[in-house]
Design a protein around this nucleic acid. Structure first.
Lengths: 205, 205
DNA sequence: CTTAGACCTAAGCAACCGCTTAGTATGGAG
DNA sequence: CTCCATACTAAGCGGTTGCTTAGGTCTAAG
């Protein structure tokens, strides 16, 4: 989950489940274009050109431009959920810290995907949005459970669990907005910084 | 700065400097449309219809659709800067708390404008973007100065001033993304919650 | 009444959009 | 070799876009 490459979209495993390869290349091209210009400002001709194919090739593998967005959003949400819940720590303090570290650094390292995930929800059809909203509900529940676990164990000082959960998620998600690979912090450093800030917010002992 | 109305865009003073009234109505209509559908998904016909005028009327008062965006972005940035720096408190702890309370609640109460301000930067021309980026630099500097003042006075415990500044701004800005008027928190409550969380992050005594 | 100017509309233009259609190249099965 | 499915392209269709042009309506000064 921690590479130093600048162009890992073609190297990572996020899209490994997408076949055939031409469909995968199309998705990666679309994710790159959507994250830079936004969904509505990106044309199907842009996507096809970036994937090295003709405009009509998009419709061999996808029904519409919106379906490309949906697949990126669905896989991106599923990936970020597994990053968040994949931490092995058991102790509430260490567990929340590890989850925040992983979640925040994912939003930096995969900011291309993360931007589409976080800022293009309104372009989805109602049916596709509903499916993605369910994944977002599970992401929020995962963080809330970790905060609650710390409160129950008596190692967090949190007057407002829902408010703290909101703030933790908000802080991590916003990394996708401001992160630049050319910036002064690596994804791993951002993860460490944010894990510390979150432990302060929840008053960890 | 704290109303309970659901439709304060027509009541507030954010756009009071824009004349003539028809140009102001057009700006307010554009801000509402941009915040809901996004800049690229909004047509000049949408804006004109919402302002109760013909499509051609847009071009009486503005050179282009992008100039509408620029005026919203410029005025919005200037307003949020004055909200942040307009606090009267002198004590570093009280001052940062008041600034965060005001800045966060502004992003909730004026989330319509705030969304355009925070998420449509890439649609600006390079010249207009440069002007807005200068305002953003001043916003960041204002927060950094408040954090530094607390560190200098020995009332904050901050290992990384730039990192803490980044997180404070990030937290407040992201309110514009998730806030809904129908949600369970009022803008004032969000301001209070965030002021408390930020004081914890900077280790205020 | 005339005139000037500010403000607005009806109509439409060239360019571009998402997507479709018709047809071509390829490679494996029989 | 024939046959056929898969993957792709060239060309283009109907509709929409940002913006322009030509002209109408109102107000107020002379």
């Amino acid at each position: 989950m921690t590479t130093t490459s600048g162009e890992f979209a073609l190297l990572d495993e996020t899209w490994s489940s997408v076949t055939p390869p031409a469909a995968r290349r199309m998705l990666i091209a679309a994710a790159a274009a959507f994250s830079v210009r936004g969904y509505h400002a990106t044309t199907t001709r842009d996507i096809a050109a970036q994937a090295g194919m003709s405009p009509a090739a998009v419709y061999i593998h996808y029904r519409s431009k919106e379906e490309l967005l949906f697949q990126i959003s669905r896989i991106g949400h599923a990936t970020s959920l597994s990053v968040l819940t994949g931490v092995s720590e058991v102790d509430p303090v260490a567990r929340l810290a590890a989850a925040v570290r992983a979640f925040a650094s994912w939003h930096a390292e995969y900011h291309t995907t993360a931007r589409v995930v976080q800022y293009e929800l309104s372009a989805l059809t109602p049916e596709h949005l509903a499916e993605v909203v369910e994944l977002r509900r599970r992401i929020e529940a995962a963080v809330r459970d970790m905060v609650t676990a710390g409160v129950t164990a008596g190692v967090f000082d949190v007057p407002d669990v829902r408010g703290a959960t909101l703030a933790v998620l908000s802080l991590c998600i916003d990394v996708a907005r401001w992160y630049q690979p050319s910036g002064r912090r690596t994804p791993a450093e951002i993860g460490d910084l944010y894990a510390d800030l979150v432990l302060r917010m929840v008053g960890a002992t």
